[in-house]
């Protein structure tokens, strides 16, 4: 019988410090058994439980795209027990991952649409996965205009710099990266995400918005989108709640009758409007 609690063993192939405060590190994992990589078939927006023997498990969004073969990426913020322990782990250490869990962004039903992708802070992880996947030559023609708005407090807190700088040079995606306040040698935008969104968001017709960020950013960006004419079913978000099993069984991540782990974490605003605000 398949055991969804049993992690696949992985090796840490690389650790990259992402932010200048060193609180975010990206872990590149390789499966010890190459077969496990096939079993771990995922799509952008899904997450996994990272499993450290003796420490426990944490749910983390998958930052790599399924089109990146041979490894999976996760960007981990240093918060508590497991994440801090991971920040002290070394290349070649062995641990476990289990998943993929949750539902991906509905990229299949979004075909033919323009996409407005909005990220704040380190919640950009699964949107990195999404953009890498969308920009693949076999996927890009299936979508309209792609607009990416990404903000952080300071330049040093922005993740994946090499990547978004490269995207900025392409003509099949419009990139607007912004920081809160002016600093020397900054060649991109200055201002909060909601303000930048207001300025650059495409017309709502045939457009969907994917939005991930801290609650405060979502709180102020949502009205901007609604004012611009985006309907609740075209605004797509990803929720976080405390989790253990990731399977809709242990009972702690529910928002009303829905489990964030099993039925989410991706929900449309239209769905969330029908649910209690317990997240």
């Amino acid at each position: 019988m398949f055991n969804p609690y049993l992690p696949y063993p992985v090796r840490i192939a690389e650790i990259r410090v992402e932010t200048e405060d060193k609180n975010l590190r990206t872990f590149k994992f390789e499966f010890l058994d190459p077969d496990d990589e096939n079993k771990f078939a995922y799509m952008p927006g899904q997450f996994a439980e990272l499993s450290v023997p003796g420490q426990g498990e944490i749910p983390i969004g998958i930052a790599s795209s399924p089109s990146e073969k041979g490894h999976v990426l996760f960007t981990v913020n240093r918060v508590g027990q497991v994440s801090s322990y991971m920040h002290n782990m070394k290349k070649d250490d062995i641990m476990g991952i289990r998943g993929p869990l949750g539902h991906p962004y509905p990229l299949d039903t979004l075909q033919g649409k323009n996409l407005l992708i909005i990220a704040g802070g380190f919640a950009v992880t699964t949107l990195r996965s999404t953009i890498i996947w969308l920009l693949e030559p076999e996927n890009r023609p299936n979508y309209g205009k792609i607009t990416f708005v990404y903000g952080a407090r300071t330049p040093g807190l922005l993740l994946y710099k090499d990547e978004w700088m490269a995207w900025d040079k392409r003509d099949d995606i419009d990139v607007f990266v912004t920081i809160d306040r002016e600093v020397p040698d900054w060649n991109y935008r200055v201002g909060f995400v909601p303000a930048v969104t207001k300025e650059v968001c495409p017309a709502p017709e045939n457009t969907a918005a994917l939005i991930c960020g801290p609650p405060i950013m979502i709180k102020f960006t949502q009205p901007v989108l609604e004012e611009a004419g985006y309907t609740p079913d075209s605004i797509i978000m990803s929720l976080e709640n405390r989790m253990k099993c990731g399977l809709g069984i242990c009972g702690r991540c529910n928002v009303g009758p829905e489990y964030v782990c099993k039925d989410g974490p991706v929900f449309t605003l239209a769905q969330l409007n029908q649910l209690p605000k317990e997240y």
Partner: peptide, 24 residues
């Protein structure tokens, strides 16, 4: 009621992952 928590218990060589009843 079926809710549970998952915890690891370890010694120097290894350990077990277990689940325990939990409560909302």
């Amino acid at each position: 009621c079926h809710c549970f928590d998952i915890q690891d218990e370890e010694n120097s060589e290894g350990g077990v992952r277990m689940r325990n009843w939990d409560t909302c």
